[in-house]
């Protein structure tokens, strides 16, 4: 029987991926690993109430055991999902498709290829499919009561052990779900300047701060702010890129933004080819003025 299991690491992820689940074309259940399961229209919602996300080896085994009855398993494309879903695919002997942006037909999936240089159509030749999805490609989910909600306790034993958990820096909205993202590149000089200008404008607009790899590499911004092919994929209503050249790898992470604004001193910077609005201006003048007028 065709049925989808939507796995969410948090209630916010369940909401973000609900549009995909509601439009995928088969009934679905929800497994929410932390927090309470939001009303997204699942036939059955299960809450695992984990206090922390355990290492992938134990978690993958536990999640695969929960998934044996399903033809399809999906989770939003986060680093947590990328860590553990391929393990589930191997355990379930399922096909795996990463970063799905559209599902044009049965057993067909579309996904970016080579940092978005192409959109690949992938055909699955297996009865079971595990996938990570990018919510921006799918309609917005509608709140909808779940059929039933129950609690489960997952039996998880891992060989690996987290000796020090990551500290979420908090304060700003999650990059992958923010409505406004302000990002800065290499010219931001240092962490304090980045925080003052990029962080300051982001806060002013109620948005998240992002960065290029060049900014992360030079210690200007912390790694979890990296946006792009190998960082986070964002899809805000407004993306402001200040002092960013527009490399293929960076653009791969921002293509789903509704409006892209680029501020760069070099009128020939490639980012202007993809920006909705381009402004040739020094960011050290532009950002404060923008903050005072927006």
């Amino acid at each position: 029987m065709s049925k989808l299991l939507l796995i969410a690491f948090s209630p916010a992820e369940a909401e973000a991926a609900s549009g995909f689940a509601q439009s995928f074309g088969m009934p679905f259940d929800l497994l929410c690993l932390t927090g309470s399961a939001p009303a997204v229209g699942a036939e059955k919602a299960t809450e695992a109430n984990l206090e922390a996300i355990p290492p992938a080896d134990g978690l993958g085994t536990a999640l695969a055991a929960q998934s044996t009855e399903y033809s399809h398993v999906a989770a939003m494309s986060s680093m947590k999902a990328k860590d553990v879903l391929p393990r589930m695919a191997a355990l379930l002997d399922a096909a795996m498709v990463s970063d799905v942006i559209a599902t044009p037909a049965k057993n067909q999936y579309q996904r970016p290829y080579a940092a978005g240089a192409a959109i690949a159509t992938v055909e699955v030749t297996s009865d079971k499919t595990v996938m990570t999805i990018r919510p921006a490609g799918f309609p917005q989910g509608e709140p909808n009561p779940n059929g039933s909600t129950e609690a489960t306790s997952l039996d998880i034993t891992s060989k690996a052990e987290v000796t020090q958990a990551a500290q979420a820096s908090g304060g700003r909205p999650d990059l992958t779900q923010a409505k406004v993202v302000v990002s800065g590149g290499r010219p931001l000089k240092d962490a304090a300047t980045f925080e003052e200008l990029i962080g300051g404008l982001a806060d002013h607009l109620g948005g998240a701060a992002g960065a290029t790899r060049a900014a992360v590499d030079s210690g200007i911004a912390s790694n979890e702010l990296q946006v792009g092919q190998t960082g986070k994929i964002v899809a805000p209503d407004l993306y402001i890129a200040a002092g960013i050249s527009g490399s293929t790898q960076h653009m791969a992470g921002i293509k789903d933004s509704k409006v892209i604004v680029a501020i760069n001193t070099d009128g020939d910077a490639p980012i202007f080819e993809s920006a909705d609005f381009g402004l040739v201006m020094d960011l050290f003048d532009a950002i404060p003025e923008l903050k005072s007028k927006l």
Binding site: A120, T121, T125, I260, F272
Partner: peptide
Amino acid sequence: KTRITHLAPPPERPPGRMVGSI
């Protein structure tokens, strides 16, 4: 278990425009 059947160019963004001031 998967096979790429087609590779298409990514959708183009509608052309943007340059603005002269904040």
